[in-house]
Design a protein around this nucleic acid. Structure first.
Lengths: 133, 133
DNA sequence: CAGGATCCGCTAGGATACTG
DNA sequence: CAGTATCCTAGCGGATCCTG
């Protein structure tokens, strides 16, 4: 499993990997780009937050989904969880270096989307109402 | 609700826009990062393909999902569809400039994911088998 | 060939209640 | 506070058949 500098063809091959239906990274893609994961990344960008703080930050997420999302992210090494053994419980979350790297791309996409959303909406209107006489 | 030139704080607010549960761009995010949309973008990167070619390129996608994905992408202005009125039908798809812009971010994310997938998998194994004696 | 129409299983995800 | 457990529903998505 040594990692040498990738040749161009290797890079190109790797790039198409996801198009393979059996590609195991598809599930990771699915998780990472899932509705809530991206928003949690957005909320945790260079911050450390507690469970309920994230819940408040990410509008509309349910406890169940937040818990599950956090578990997945931790499992994938994107999220660090620190729990103090006190009562009432105190747990803090923040992105790991790996998670922060990933968040760069997620945030870039989110930013692009937000800034181009008006254009997309306009295209959609044009599309759905094409020159009605 | 009037829109003047954005101040820095407004820009920062815009970045958090997606965290608002009522934010309309959430649905676009959902569509754009949906399972198949990203893979179709991957397949169409600087290419023009026909329906069945895309279907073959994106392993595992069903006709129904491909058709729906293409419709959404066209609706959002990410995809251009050209149909010749011949029999048998001939239809070609390629990304619009807007779609190509978007694909940059999607592909960047996909690339990062593919190259870091081994690491993520390793983290997951470590996580699921923590120092068993 | 490029899809639309239908049927249907599965699961993502919400609401609520409960616990350490 | 930080979750887990349970129940339940909408809609994602697959399989299949059909048509211009």
């Amino acid at each position: 499993m040594e990692k040498k500098s990738a040749t161009l063809s290797e890079v190109m091959a790797a790039r198409g990997e996801l198009l393979n239906p059996d590609c195991p990274s598809r599930e990771v893609l699915k998780r990472m780009t899932s509705r809530w994961t991206m928003l949690v990344m957005l909320a945790l960008q260079d911050k450390t937050l507690r469970f309920s703080e994230i819940r408040r930050a990410v509008g509309g997420i349910s406890e169940r989904m937040l818990a599950q999302t956090l578990r997945y992210m931790e499992e994938d090494g994107l999220l660090a969880r620190k729990a103090w053994d006190v009562v009432p419980p105190h747990v803090e979350y923040n992105l790991t270096p790996l998670g922060q790297q990933a968040s760069i791309y997620v945030l870039a996409l989110a930013d692009w989307l937000e800034s181009h959303f008006p254009l997309i909406e306009q295209r959609r209107r044009e599309h759905n109402a094409p020159s009605r006489p």
